[in-house]
């Protein structure tokens, strides 16, 4: 369970937060919509203590993030924009092993987690490949595997589709769908809602640091009209699926 209790945050170059209260149960697929600067990224960075609230509390499974940063960072896996800048090792296997190794886990456990995380993103057996020789979509999936190797209950993704072409985007969406089906909670920030809306249990929209919509996808879409939230092609996509 991820909980925000009256969280306010004053300044960050990616936006502010004003009195945000939310709770996201385990296993829920949430799409977080909003324009650039609406506070999406700021909100996400509070989930694992990369930012700390000026007022209010963020809790992961009932414990304040500030009281157990390591717990929050293992329970909430985070994937950022620009996967190229998130890798710490040149090869796939070494990179995915970085998180578990930091937790001080045994060699065998690390290897097991790396294999499992790569399997979850359809890259099993590619441990020894060089990351800079992979396609953009494969790099995104390695970044996701790096987060999954921490065995998180929630996976948080900030604009993971930036710079991806259509097939790559679809391959990432497909993996998210499979992870959600296996019970991983997903919090996906994007301003490009097509085809992820159909997967979502819930849509949260932000504007000027506040939550302005929080509803089921079909109802949320109507409420999004007239708000400063860009929803390109979302309606058509949802109608197609429903």
């Amino acid at each position: 369970m991820l909980e925000f209790r009256s969280v306010s945050f004053g300044f960050d170059d990616v936006g502010v937060l004003e009195d945000v209260s939310l709770s996201i149960p385990d296993g829920e697929f949430v799409v977080l919509a909003g324009a650039n600067g609406s506070g999406k990224t700021t909100l996400l960075r509070h989930c694992n203590g990369l930012l700390s609230p000026d007022e209010g509390t963020v809790l992961v499974d009932g414990t304040s993030v500030e009281d157990d940063v390591i717990g929050a960072r293992t329970s909430v896996g985070m994937v950022f924009q620009h996967p190229r800048d998130q890798f710490v090792a040149a090869t796939v296997g070494d990179d995915v092993a970085f998180g578990p190794a930091n937790l001080g886990l045994g060699r065998e456990e690390i290897d097991r987690r790396v294999a499992e995380a790569l399997g979850a993103v359809n890259l099993r057996g590619r441990e020894d490949e060089r990351i800079d020789r992979l396609s953009g979509g494969e790099q995104s999936r390695v970044a996701i595997a790096g987060a999954l190797a921490m065995e998180p209950t929630h996976l948080v993704l900030d604009e993971p589709f930036t710079g991806l072409d259509e097939p790559a985007r679809r391959s990432v969406v497909g993996r998210l769908e499979a992870l959600a089906a296996d019970g991983t909670g997903i919090l996906l920030a994007t301003h490009d809602l097509r085809d992820v809306l159909g997967l979502a249990d819930r849509v949260i929209a932000m504007a000027d640091g506040r939550v302005v919509v929080d509803d089921r996808p079909d109802r949320a879409l109507e409420e999004l009209d007239g708000l400063p939230v860009r929803v390109p092609r979302a309606r058509a996509d949802l109608e197609e699926r429903c």
Binding site: R45, N48, L50, I70, R73, T74, G77, M78, F80, Q81, H82, R84, D85, Q86, F87, V88, F98, G99, P100, A101, N102, L103, G104, L105, G106, R107, I110, G146, A147, M150
Partner: peptide, 21 residues
Amino acid sequence: RADRLSLALRARCFSWNPTLP
């Protein structure tokens, strides 16, 4: 790039005492 990398390092629990290769 370094500033983005540092966020990723922190999110992945960059620690002083990892399991050594």
